[in-house]
Design a protein around this nucleic acid. Structure first.
Lengths: 282, 282
DNA sequence: TCCCATCTGAAATCAGTATTCCAGAATTGA
DNA sequence: TCAATTCTGGAATACTGATTTCAGATGGGA
């Protein structure tokens, strides 16, 4: 299969000295029509390179591929990885890309996610991940009008990874009961964006007063909860729409979940298997 | 074969309405993995799309190609023309592939969102937006284990914009009651990704049987719900993590909400003001 | 409800392609 | 110049993958 960290083109350039004459011709033909020539049939490729089919196969074998289809698969994978780069998007959209609303919306989303990660303080991120991965801490998650979906989403993942995860759902009245239990060992994760909700601020302030650690995930203008928060992470939420976008905030949340997953993996692995088993029973 | 001035992707998007169900699945599979899926063998392509090999061939024939190899040649030519221009450069200088996990995660998120919008068939998107904005239709939203948060999120926005929006929450048992009310005038919006949930498929199938229109928002591999869906939108969900990412799906959903908002704005404006007023009272 | 038209995929068939073999050509070194 | 070695491509072979067929499934209309 060859070294997967190297493109096929690189391997050809590197090894071309040691090739036989017809292998070299095949290699040059491929490089000069890269990578399409390699996606043709052996016969076509051979004709293009001016060599025989067997020579092409020897060339492919020399590059370390088990068979011609295997070689083509590698080329396709390589190409696909290349096409993944977002630059490609522009060339795909034939007509007036920045004009249409959908395109503008897409561009804004992409920018939000990119900016959010670009401005993320790694220490802060790691500190939060460590906190969420600490099994001695109890976690409580709560969100506002629209961000509650993210709180819920995070909770549903974290609950799988570790015990002691609660989502403060719906009714504000229930929160009071929860408050009673919040203390030094508790972490309250608050999701709150623009048009910050008063009751959320009150809850966080009260919880902080009782000694709980507050983690705030908010927008770039920072919810007032930041006053009492031990850790603050912010995400970009602007969109060409009447609504704010929580896409970047979800991306940030997923990144946190991924980091926590990694930290907890030894213990979480068995836990997940057990959960799968129980789900199977249901 | 076919009109040479049009890309194959365009022809698919344009004609997809008139395709048969399995041709449509093939088309969607190709669009969501464009154009690599089409460079695979018929069998691989068929497996990816979840249809049989003959269906893929009928799909290719419908696009106006004389044979599968002819179709592949067209794809290659198209791709070659694209590669000729801008991004050869960018792909070669893969400078600084972010080694750190957070950077890789961020890059994947950005790519997911970009790809999702790049491969989104605009007609399909518009059709869904129109459906969701039709006040004569009742909307019912439901999601799976992790996607339910998105269903809920979408519902909370749509509910503000228009009447007749229901979120099928939690308990599977409650769904049954709901099913009774689903008929020709109803739209069931289903969010379902990898490790597709059986009960969701059952629900959608049953709802479709009762004449409801099914809108499916799924991943690039298409939930089995696509069999009964009137409209399918797919989002990229792969992430360098143990979990799949729903970021792009949320982005897609927000784009839909934005489109619906725009369509309904004249009527929604007053509605929102009224809601604000009521919230003020509480 | 039944019928007709349409669609779909399993299996059989067929075509074309990769692969192998080997004889002869080219190259090398003495 | 001559052998030894390496390389090369024509032709036979073995597969794999495209294509066709057809029976059954599906859906829509009377």
């Amino acid at each position: 299969m060859g070294n997967p960290d190297q493109t096929i083109a690189e391997r050809i350039r590197e090894g071309i000295r040691d090739f036989t004459a017809s292998e070299r011709r095949a290699g040059l033909a491929l490089l000069s029509h890269y990578p399409m020539a390699g996606l043709e049939t052996v016969a076509e490729f051979a004709a293009r390179a001016g060599v025989s089919a067997p020579s092409v196969l020897r060339f492919v074998a020399r590059l370390g591929h088990a068979s011609y289809p295997d070689f083509q698969r590698a080329l396709r994978d390589e190409l696909e990885a290349q096409l993944k780069t977002p630059l490609m998007k522009a060339s795909h959209e034939t007509s007036a890309p920045p004009q249409d609303r959908l395109g503008r919306f897409a561009a804004a989303m992409v920018a939000n996610v990119a900016d959010t990660f670009a401005h993320l303080p790694p220490q802060e991120f790691d500190a939060v991940a460590a906190l969420l991965a600490d099994p001695r801490r109890k976690l409580h998650l709560v969100g506002g009008r629209f961000t509650d979906a993210i709180a819920r989403y995070a909770a549903s993942h974290l609950r799988i990874l570790r015990p002691g995860v609660a989502h403060l759902a719906g009714q504000v009245e229930h929160w009071r009961d929860h408050l009673l239990d919040l203390g030094r060992r508790d972490v309250l994760v608050v999701f709150d964006i623009r048009r910050y909700q008063e009751n959320i601020v009150t809850l966080a302030t009260e919880a902080a007063g009782r000694g709980a650690t507050i983690v705030l995930v908010t927008d770039q203008w920072l919810s007032p909860v930041s006053r009492v928060a031990g850790h603050v992470l912010s995400a970009r939420i602007e969109a060409p729409s009447n609504w704010d976008s929580t896409v970047a905030m979800l991306a940030l949340t997923e990144a946190l979940v991924a980091a926590v997953t990694e930290r907890l993996w030894p213990s979480a692995k068995g836990r997940i298997e057990e959960i799968e088993r129980l789900r199977g029973l249901a």
